[in-house]
Simulated assay, not measured.
Amino acid sequence: MANNLHKDHRKRVKARYLSLGLDAFTGHNILEFLLFFAIPQKDTNEIAHQLMNQFGSFSAVLDASLEELMEVDGIGEHAAILLHLIPDLARAYLEDKAEPHQKYDTPQKLMEFFKPKFIGLKQEVLYAVCLDNTNHMVSCTKLAEGFSDSVSLPIEEIVKFSFRYNAKNIILAHNHPFGLANPSASDQISTIELKKALSALNIYLIDHIIVGKNLDALSMREYGCLEEFVDQDWTYLASSK
């Protein structure tokens, strides 16, 4: 009898998803449903409650490490991998939907482009984008991975990146995986120093985007960090005026 009730419950949950989608589910319900596909025999409702109690929120469960997940009773390797996979899938999905060759002539467009690249990351990562003279993206490359609270701005790699694509206009982006998008004093100093160094090589650092833990984002150009060093002939933003 218990097996039949368990089986019927799963059928009802699946039917609710097919009928109403995830909008009808709480975070706990989503976890319960997701675990159906990794734990075929057990009651995943109770395991979902344990996960929520352990980590505090749906997003915190998905951000947990494999080791942390497997400490929860009922979560084995398959279930832990499935849960850990979700942020990676979200990042891959949103990156695939991005339009790398569209015109990026406002900070807002760039911030929306970069946000998906940092979903679920636990360390700071630096990306570089080069634009052609019409503000179309030529390439986007991950240049460096750092720690939870820092990443270097490697001028040699940035210069190589620029020369590789014969592009003079560079935009950087990095994340604050455990903080807001506000630039730290170190972010501001290193960005200004980097812009000066690149300018000497006729490479122009147009903007530096920072993405926070909740996918809030900030343009250091708009923030005023690069204002003193903005090149008068640069057309970034000008095409929208």
Rank of each mutant, 00 (worst) to 15 (best):
Y17F: 15
H101I: 03
G21S: 06
F55L: 07
L110W: 11
E68G: 08
H208G: 07
P100M: 00
G179W: 10
D231V: 14
S184N: 09
F114L: 10
L66D: 01
N45D: 13
P116M: 03
H84G: 04
G224V: 13
I155F: 01
R221V: 12
Y236F: 15
A64I: 02
Y104V: 11
H78Y: 11
P40E: 09
M70Q: 14
L218N: 04
A92I: 08
F161N: 12
L35I: 02
G27V: 03
E99W: 05
K241R: 12
F118H: 08
L218A: 11
L153E: 07
T235R: 15
R12K: 14
A80T: 12
F55D: 04
V151Y: 09
A79F: 01
E222D: 13
L69C: 05
K14A: 14
S19E: 15
S239G: 15
D96T: 14
K168S: 09
W234F: 15
L22K: 14
A144M: 05
D231G: 12
Y165H: 14
L205D: 09
A79P: 05
F114R: 10
F58K: 01
N4Y: 14
G146E: 10
S199F: 14
F58M: 07
T26Y: 01
D231Q: 15
K160C: 06
L51P: 02
V61Q: 03
L126T: 03
P107E: 03
A200R: 14
Y93M: 01
L5W: 01
I210N: 02
I86S: 00
K115L: 09
D207N: 04
F118M: 10
L20F: 12
I30M: 11
W234M: 11
D216C: 06
G74Y: 08
A217S: 10
L180G: 07
Y17E: 13
I203Y: 15
E145V: 01
P100S: 04
V61W: 13
E71D: 00
K122N: 10
K241T: 02
C130Q: 00
L69N: 05
L31Q: 03
S219V: 05
L126N: 04
I30F: 06
C225R: 02
M137E: 04
I75D: 02
L126M: 03
L85M: 11
A167Y: 12
L153T: 06
T44W: 13
R10W: 14
A200C: 11
F55E: 00
R16H: 12
T44M: 06
S19G: 15
G21K: 10
F229H: 12
N135D: 11
A48I: 08
R164C: 04
N135M: 15
H208Y: 12
W234G: 13
G179S: 09
D149C: 02
Y165T: 03
L34R: 02
C225F: 01
N166W: 15
E95G: 12
N169S: 08
F25I: 07
L126V: 05
H84A: 15
Y223P: 03
P183A: 05
Q41A: 05
L218H: 04
V230Q: 09
Q54E: 14
F113Y: 10
I81A: 08
L215F: 00
F58W: 13
V13I: 13
